[in-house]
Nucleic acid binder design. Sequence first.
DNA 1: ATTAGCACTCCATACACGTGAGTGCTAATC
DNA 2: GATTAGCACTCACGTGTATGGAGTGCTAAT
Lengths: 355, 355
Amino acid sequence: MSLGERKKRILQAIVDAYINTAEPVGSRAIANINAWGLSSATIRNEMSDLEELGYLDKPHTSAGRVPSALGYRMYVDQLMAQYRMTVDEISAIRLAMTMKLNELDEIMAQATKIISHLTSYTTMVTAPQMSKTAVKHIELYPIDAVSLVIFLVTGSGVAKNRSIRLKRPIDSIAVTRLSNLLNSKLAGHTIEEITFSKIQSIRNEMHGNEDIVIPILEQISECIHAIDNTAVYVGGANKIFDFPEYHDMQKAKQLLSFLDTKESVNEMLHMASQQQGIQKGNIHIIIGEQCGFLEMSDLSMMTAKYAVGDRIIGTIGIIGPTRMDYAKMVSSMELLTEAFNHILTQVIKEEKGDT
Amino acid sequence: MSLGERKKRILQAIVDAYINTAEPVGSRAIANINAWGLSSATIRNEMSDLEELGYLDKPHTSAGRVPSALGYRMYVDQLMAQYRMTVDEISAIRLAMTMKLNELDEIMAQATKIISHLTSYTTMVTAPQMSKTAVKHIELYPIDAVSLVIFLVTGSGVAKNRSIRLKRPIDSIAVTRLSNLLNSKLAGHTIEEITFSKIQSIRNEMHGNEDIVIPILEQISECIHAIDNTAVYVGGANKIFDFPEYHDMQKAKQLLSFLDTKESVNEMLHMASQQQGIQKGNIHIIIGEQCGFLEMSDLSMMTAKYAVGDRIIGTIGIIGPTRMDYAKMVSSMELLTEAFNHILTQVIKEEKGDT
DNA sequence: ATTAGCACTCCATACACGTGAGTGCTAATC
DNA sequence: GATTAGCACTCACGTGTATGGAGTGCTAAT
C-alpha cells in the first residue's frame, strides 16, 4: 500500500489507542499523545483521508474514528511494533507450560486453560490428528461374555481405549485369537490403510466368529476418528465478558453457544487455517468477518499450527475482539506454540526406528 | 407449619405465578386468576400476614410479593402439585437417553448435555466413583525405551489408560514381567487395598528394577483417583442466560466461572447431597444460599443419586433460579435418573461371579 | 502546508413529569 | 368478625427536554 509515512504513523497511533481504550479515538488525543508537533486540525485532515481510503470508520458524525477491518489489516501487516516480552512474561509462560500431566486428554485440556489464562483471551486447541498415524498395538480384553475392551496404541504413542458390547456371547479364546490377528495384520498401518482384502483375510481366519470382526473394526475406526473430529478444547470462554464490546448479553450468549458445540469450533479452526489471512511468522491472523462465521463478526482470531517432530498435527487458536493487542499476542502465541510443541514432543513420540 | 388452609393456597398461587412470570406478583393477579371469589383486598391482608411470617418478600414498597427461600421451601415441601408428565415428554426423554455410545467419558458428557437440554437447566453430573471398585486387569505396554502405557480395566468394566515416562530406560522383558506381576497381585483389589507389603513383594520380585515399581503404582493410583476427583460434567451452562434474573452480566459471569472449575462443582455437588434440604423421593432440593456457595445465592439446586446395581456411584444435579419449576423438575429428574441408571447399567457391569 | 477558530453534530447524562401497578389503611358492609 | 370498597400514597419506569462535552469539517489566516 502506498500510504504516506505520516498517514501510516497516524493510523498506527489510532489503532494502538483503540486497542487500549476500546473507544473511538479523536484527533486531539492523537495530537497530544505523540511528540511529532502536529495540531489536531492536521491530524483531522489526515484522518479524513484515511477514512476515505477505507482504513478508518466513524461510528457516527461526531465520534472519534475507529479502525476498519482494512485498518487492522494494514496495522498487523506493516505497522505494529514488535512486542518484546519481558523476562517476567517469558518465564511465567515457561513455568506454566511445564506441566506434569501424562494423559493426552488432560494435557490438552490443561494447556488450553493455561494459554487462555496467559493470553487472557478465549483459547481453542484441536487435538492431534490421529487418523494419519499408524496403529502400533491393538489388544482386546474380555470383560464378560458379551463385552470387551479395545486397547489401542498409536504409532505416536498415544493410547486410547473403548469398550464394546457384542450382539452375542463369544468365548475368551476367540477374543484372544482375534486380538492377535488384529495386531499382526493391522499394526504399522493407519486406519485409512485398512483395506477390504485385509478385513477379509482376518475374517477368514476367525472360523465361526466372522461376524464379530466388522463391529470391532468399526469401533476401532470410530474411536480413532472420534479423536480427530470432536476433540476440540476450549478454554476461558468466559473471558469474552471482559471485553466492553461484549457487554451485550445477546452477543455474548451467541458466542458462548457457538463455542459450546465442538463441531463448529473445529470447523472454524479448520477453515481459519486455510483461509487467506495475514501471516506473521507461523501465526495466522484473521480479522473480523473474514472467517465466514457470523458469530465472529467483530472478533479476530489468531491461529498457529503446532507440530510434533516435523509433522503438523493440530491448531491452536485464540479469539478476541478485533481490537485485540495483536503485537503482544503474536509474541505470546509464538512462545506458547513453541512450548506446547516441546511438551507434546515429550509425550507423543514419533516412531523412530523402534518397533 | 400451622398455616391456615387459605394462606397455603394463596402462597401456592403466588409461587406458581412467580415461577411462570419471574415478576413480583400482586394481590390483584391472585384475586383474578383464582376462582375462589376473594377480593384483592382480602388477598392483600393475607399476603401481608404471609410476609410477616417470612414466606414472602417485597422487593420494594409498591411492587408485588416474591416468595422467600422459606416460601419456596414450604411450597416444595407441602404445596406443589405433582406434575404429571405428558406422554410426549416421557417418550422424548426416553428417546433422547437411548444413546449408542460406548466410551464412559462420552456417555457422561453426552448425557449431561441431553439432560440439560431436556430440562432446560444447567446440568452437572459427577462421574462414577472408581476408587471403590476393584481393579480387574492391569497391563503395561512399552512404547519406547523410557515410555510405557498403562491399561486398566476396573471391576465395573470401565477401561482407562495412561502413559508414563520413566527416569531411565527399561527393557521390554522387565516391563512384561512387571505387567504380569501387577496383574496377579493387584487384580481383584481396590486401590485402597494395595498395602505396603503387597508393594514390597512386587518390588522384591523385580530384581534390579525395583525403582520403577513405585512411579508406576503412583500413576495407577493417580489415574483412578483422577477420575473420581475431577470428572464432573457440566452441560448447558449457557442456559442461565435464559433466565431474566441472570440478565445481569456480573452475576452471569460469576456463575459461569464457578461452573468452569470442576473442583468447585464437584465440591458443591458433594455438599449438596449431604446438606440437609428437602427430600422428595430420591430427589434432593436445596433452595437459595443454603448450599453455602455465594455464587448460588439466588439459585436452587436439585440433585439425585444415580446408581449401578445397588451401589450408589454418582450424582446428577441441575441448577436453576430459585423460582424454578420444582414440580416439573422433580418428575423429570426422577425419570432421567432412572433412564441414566439403565444406560449405565448396560455399559458398566458389576462384577457378578465372573472373574 | 499548517493551524487557529468557529459552527455544527451527535451522544450521554441528568432532570422533570406523567403513568401504572401495587400497597396499606380505614370505613362501610355482610 | 371477616370481607370488601375506596382512596391516598409509594415507587419504578418510560418519555421528553435541556445541557455539556467531545468531536468533526470548513474557512480564513499564517
